[in-house]
């Protein structure tokens, strides 16, 4: 990640092995797209496992999905989409070489990302209190029906694995964005040389896309159960 974003000569923008800036820019962007392709396969494989079990245990997954708060999910989706918008505006500012705006929008992106993670944390705490953590001793949502119980656990295994993996990606993204903000503050970017902002933006939008799929997969399985709680 950081490699792609910052594979630059310490003092000058063009790395020694590239002939010119467009070549370097295109290579770095292409590298980021390829990296995102690997990410698609990474998340895709978990989605596959999720799909298989959702197909097999439709009702239990419904029962389990009802334990999640669609309100949290929806608000978080809004927050993340907003953060994506901020990122898009930061990249827009970068294209125009406006360092001040880059700093402002990148910080806003980080802020919304932090809000997202904050809400997610709150949710995790509530999930833990409700006994939705699928570990022995933690799991309290036990259903009298053995089958439903183990299948609900399976749902929560996917819930926690997928959202945690997503959260890890966000945390890494925020760290990189912080570096970007610092570089922008130090006027490292210009209208000709803004590639790190650009590729970090690609990454951030991708993380957003993952959530766009996670949301219906996890929160909209059986949303009416918790709405007004």
């Amino acid at each position: 990640m950081t490699e792609l974003a910052t594979d630059l000569h310490p003092n000058k923008a063009l790395a020694h092995h590239f002939t010119d800036m467009p070549q370097q820019r295109e290579a770095v962007t292409l590298g980021m797209w390829l990296f995102l392709a690997t990410e698609v396969m990474l998340f895709g494989a978990i989605f596959l496992a999720y799909t298989v079990y959702r197909h097999q245990y439709f009702d239990s997954f419904r029962a389990a999905g009802g334990h999640l708060f669609v309100s949290f999910g929806t608000i978080n989706t809004c927050v993340l989409l907003t953060s994506s918008l901020m990122m898009a505006l930061a990249v827009h500012a970068a294209h125009q070489g406006d360092s001040k705006k880059i700093v402002r929008y990148v910080l806003l992106t980080i802020l919304f990302g932090a809000i997202f993670l904050g809400i997610k944390m709150t949710e995790y705490v509530i999930d833990t209190r409700e006994g939705l953590v699928p570990l022995n001793g933690w799991w309290k949502a036990q259903s009298p029906d053995l089958r439903v119980d183990r299948e609900m656990r399976l749902f929560f295994v996917f819930y926690f694995t997928m959202t945690l993996l997503h959260a890890i990606h966000m945390t890494i993204g925020m760290a990189i964005l912080a570096v970007i903000a610092w570089f922008a503050h130090r006027k490292r970017f210009s209208a000709e040389d803004y590639n790190p902002v650009d590729v970090t933006g690609l990454y951030w939008h991708f993380v957003d896309i993952v959530w766009v799929f996670l949301f219906p997969a996890l929160y909209l399985v059986h949303p009416e159960m918790h709405l007004f709680k």
Binding site: L30, W33, T38, M41, A45, A88, G201, H205, F206, D208
Partner: peptide, 30 residues
């Protein structure tokens, strides 16, 4: 998001292919 936020709409054909390829492969897996 891919088309506008990630600028694929204005991107080169290569970007289109790369952006689409992972999803095609995911389709194979699924």
């Amino acid at each position: 998001i891919i088309l506008w936020f990630m600028h694929v709409k204005a991107g080169t054909r290569l970007t289109w292919i790369f952006a689409a390829s992972a999803f095609v492969w995911l389709l194979i897996l699924f």
